[in-house]
Design a protein around this nucleic acid. Structure first.
Lengths: 366, 366
DNA sequence: AACAAAAGTGTGGGCGCACACACAATTTAT
DNA sequence: ATAAATTGTGTGTGCGCCCACACTTTTGTT
């Protein structure tokens, strides 16, 4: 078909009888151009509908930006943190040719020392930007303070530290996610029922998130005026080890045998599901995150609902945001909540498949 | 920080003591290079980890691709089809500088003549690729046949024509979406209940999709062994006009006053919700698509679940797929199902907000 | 052997843009 | 008045890559 000739800076120059240099000057308005010509050029740009070719611009500028990502390591293939990582990598590939260089620093989810160590490395590198999952509260605060002093912008993913001067937070609205959990669990429970919230903590993870989840969950039942009908217990287990969890659960269920629904505030709902299955307990279960263990339990009916917080998106978005910030000088929104997907047995497969394949990415040709 | 010098074709040339021309020849293996040098170059590329800069390549090649999108027009701001369009536009902006030129052709959802007319225009233009929503079955078949003859690849979005030789289908798995609807409705219904499926058709839309939805919905109840407990009625209304719909509903509900749950197979669930509200009917309701009217009814409790089929994603994906096909010569998957999001009152806002803002897009800086 | 054809290789121009620099036309300072 | 600083403008080079073309060497043919 007849090609709509794309107009270049040269076309504008010819049209206005000035040199490309002048055009360039008015585009970047760095002065040195007479008012008349400037006006003529500006009009021509409008009239010809000229937009600079970003590829050429990027190529000509040739500047580079390094961004460091500080996230938990991925101990096993299907682990939760493989998903944000995947998103980061996809976006990194996409923007590679734009001069975005992405480096990854992994820390042990249960060892704040490793966090400090890796954070130190990043601080030393002095990158142009940082993406971090601030799972250790105090250590993260120390780190971001250092970054602030050096003038390095940083973005939180997955968990937030409110009131911190981060460039942006990209992750779930935890309170709302708890509301959803409440709603979902409530929908499959009888009018009157006892409910259990299970917290599992190990190490010194950013526990404020868990507390906010718990609160949101309870708030939901207040909000809908069900606080009379539903008794909500809380069980906090200082481990994610199966044996330990099972022991605590046994103890609890003996004491409170009337539990009809359970809400697990982290990605370990599958443990509870296993327990239920083992003891032939017919208890509704809601949990977080589309990890393989949870998917398996969902498929065989041990988990009723999974709330997924777009982990891949989070990674992608983070890089995207920094890219926009660096290259287009676009100030991001301070808070970027991601979709909270409700997963049930029936739509499970789509979420698995859709995110696997070359979701997007300019450059996924190898 | 010390910048990881990105290696170029020149570096490879210097390293291997051959000219860039030769390097270029082996990269695109278009022959004319002796076996020894070829080997040396290939090794060097591996060793130096050279990847060609896609920006430079695109710039140098300078070829253009026109893609035409044939979709329903957007009669009002919040209309369903504004969302796929939004996705198309976002992706179009993203790939503009890569030489992808996107043109839109709109047809009237209720007028197959307009479809034929617009399709004719596209055929005349002979673009490099086409994205179409094949809502008119026969007309679409005629169109794609013409495209096939001309060797123009095309992609279906939103609705599929099975067994057609399209490059790809990007849209929901309708059967599965109906399963989800069944599951959701069932979860909020008593053990024994009467259910109503409402079809609304106007004009000659691709009705096979609706039939597949209906079948999938019924299949779900068979699958879970509830066909005994649930009586499923079907009501087909030949209009989407409020008055007409209300009249038919009245007639139906008088005849079958025991209906406890309704499943609407298109995006007009809000009409049913209004009717229920008007007559103080406490009936559970499941429908499709996050259009403003539905959102409003969901907020005031008239709709329990909305299933959303990632409309924005569909548009984005379509352009992305053609881009990959043209520029990277990447053969797409024949079927690309999109996520089926389950929307409830509690997560509604996220879906609204998240898709509005610069979801992504290299080039959204103006 | 002589010469044509083919294979192998390097050079240079161009894609669209940014920017440094040279120079001309001012304006300002001395 | 002249030198100096300032403003206005054009030219040229390079970003990394692709490709047409000229050139050299090898191979094949009668």
């Amino acid at each position: 078909m007849e090609r709509t000739k794309k107009i270049t800076i040269q076309d504008v120059a010819r049209y206005t009888n000035v040199s490309v240099g002048t055009i360039d000057r008015v585009i970047h308005n760095r002065g040195r151009v007479s008012p008349e010509k400037r006006k003529k050029v500006e009009e021509a740009i409008k009239k010809l509908n000229f937009n600079p070719n970003m590829l050429a611009r990027t190529l000509a500028l040739g500047n580079q930006f390094t961004v460091c990502a500080l996230i938990p390591s991925v101990p096993s293939p299907g682990h939760y943190w493989s998903m944000p990582l995947q998103g980061l990598e996809m976006a990194a590939a996409q923007f590679k040719d734009y001069g975005i260089i992405t480096e990854y620093f992994f820390y042990d989810l249960f060892d704040e020392k490793s966090f400090i160590k890796q954070a130190g490395k990043i601080a030393e590198l002095e990158p142009n930007g940082v993406v971090l999952a601030p799972l250790f509260l105090q250590e993260s605060k120390n780190f971001t303070e250092k970054l602030r002093k050096k003038g390095i912008p940083y973005i939180f993913i997955d968990a937030d530290i409110p009131d911190d001067q981060s460039l942006s937070y990209i992750g779930p609205d935890v309170k709302q996610s708890a509301f959803i959990a409440g709603r979902l669990l409530n929908s499959v429970l009888p009018e009157k029922a006892e409910i259990l919230i299970v917290n599992m903590v190990k190490g010194f993870e950013n526990a404020s998130a868990q507390r906010r989840i718990e609160k949101g969950f309870k708030d939901y039942f207040n909000k809908i005026g069900q606080e009379e009908n539903k008794t909500i217990h809380t069980l906090t287990i200082q481990s994610t080890q199966k044996e330990e969890v099972f022991r605590e659960l046994t103890k609890f269920y003996i004491k409170y045998p009337a539990i009809k629904g359970v809400f697990v505030t982290n990605s370990k709902a599958f443990l509870i599901a296993e327990f239920h299955r083992l003891h032939y307990l017919n208890i509704r279960l809601v949990g977080y995150d589309l990890v393989p263990d949870n998917m398996e339990q969902m498929k065989n009916g041990g988990i009723d609902f999974i709330i997924s917080q777009s982990p891949v998106q989070q990674g992608k978005r983070a890089i995207q945001t920094l890219f926009d910030y660096f290259v287009w000088k676009k100030e991001p929104q301070k808070i970027q909540y991601v979709p909270l997907d409700i997963i049930i047995c029936e739509n499970l497969d789509f979420y698995i498949n859709f995110n696997r394949h070359s979701q997007n990415g300019i450059n996924n040709n190898q």
